[in-house]
């Protein structure tokens, strides 16, 4: 079988996930093609974060199939660390390594996982710091940066691994309002460059301008998948309408 550009890079089929008796994901199926930008939204507790955390196996799903870049995640012959190194992830709480400078945060994984030498890893790190527009912060510790700066460092850290896909788990939810746009700007740049992205976010402006598809989740299910225009102008499902009326009311 020859690889086709339209072949999906991520496929979820009938994925179920339980936390004890609570079912966090119910029969979730989703397919993402290379270069696609997916925005996932929905009320809190709807399973959005759980879904993207299953994609790099930070959570293990209980049944169904998840295939990332050709690797079936439950297949024991796959090295999960290797699969994860192809998937960048950005967290709500940044999760920068507090004991390392910004530069060392960026160099750690390329050095350890990709076995890049020190000079090349540093060049790579500086290049990505430039891209997220904070080259001057290279030698600072995370605590010395603002929230927006920290999140941009976290994006750069993920990009240093040259991932095939980027996952964003509410990347702007922990930020002060005035810092949200500097992070979204970087994400928009990334989208324009053709990165495959799955973003859990409540930033509906970002969804409108960047998303190829908007996925609406509620109660652990994917309720509706639509292009952004259709999603915002003429949502079909009642739950989607209710959600949109709540978040767009102000």
């Amino acid at each position: 079988m020859s690889a086709n550009v339209t072949d999906p890079i991520i496929v979820l089929e009938n994925v179920d996930k339980f936390f004890g008796p609570f079912q966090a994901l119910k029969n979730v199926s989703l397919s993402v093609r290379k270069g696609e930008k997916i925005v996932v939204c929905g009320p809190s507790g709807s399973g959005k974060s759980t879904m993207i955390r299953c994609i790099n196996r930070l959570e293990e799903h209980n049944s169904g199939t998840i295939i990332v870049n050709g690797h079936e995640l439950t297949d024991k012959t796959n090295d999960i660390d290797a699969v994860r190194s192809e998937i960048g992830m950005v967290f709500q709480s940044f999760n920068l390594f507090p004991h390392m400078t910004v530069l060392r945060n960026l160099m750690l994984a390329p050095r350890l996982v990709r076995k890049t030498n020190k000079v090349e890893a540093e060049a790579l790190a500086r290049q990505y710091l430039e891209r997220v527009r904070i080259p001057e912060q290279a030698d600072k510790y995370p605590i010395q940066l603002s929230g927006g700066q920290q999140q941009r460092v976290a994006i750069a850290r993920a990009l240093c691994m040259k991932p095939e896909v980027m996952l964003f788990d509410e990347p702007t939810s922990a930020l002060d309002p005035e810092m949200i746009s500097e992070v979204l700007d970087v994400m928009v740049d990334l989208a324009r460059e053709g990165m495959t992205m799955i973003c859990v976010t409540h930033e509906m402006g970002f969804a409108r301008s960047v998303a190829d598809k908007v996925v609406f989740m509620d109660g652990g299910e994917i309720v509706e998948v639509a292009g952004p225009t259709e999603f915002f102008e003429s949502p079909r499902n009642e739950r989607t309408k209710l959600f949109l009326s709540q978040i767009l009311a102000h």
Partner: peptide
Amino acid sequence: EAGSALGL
């Protein structure tokens, strides 16, 4: 989790 996600 951040370390895991980077493939460490």
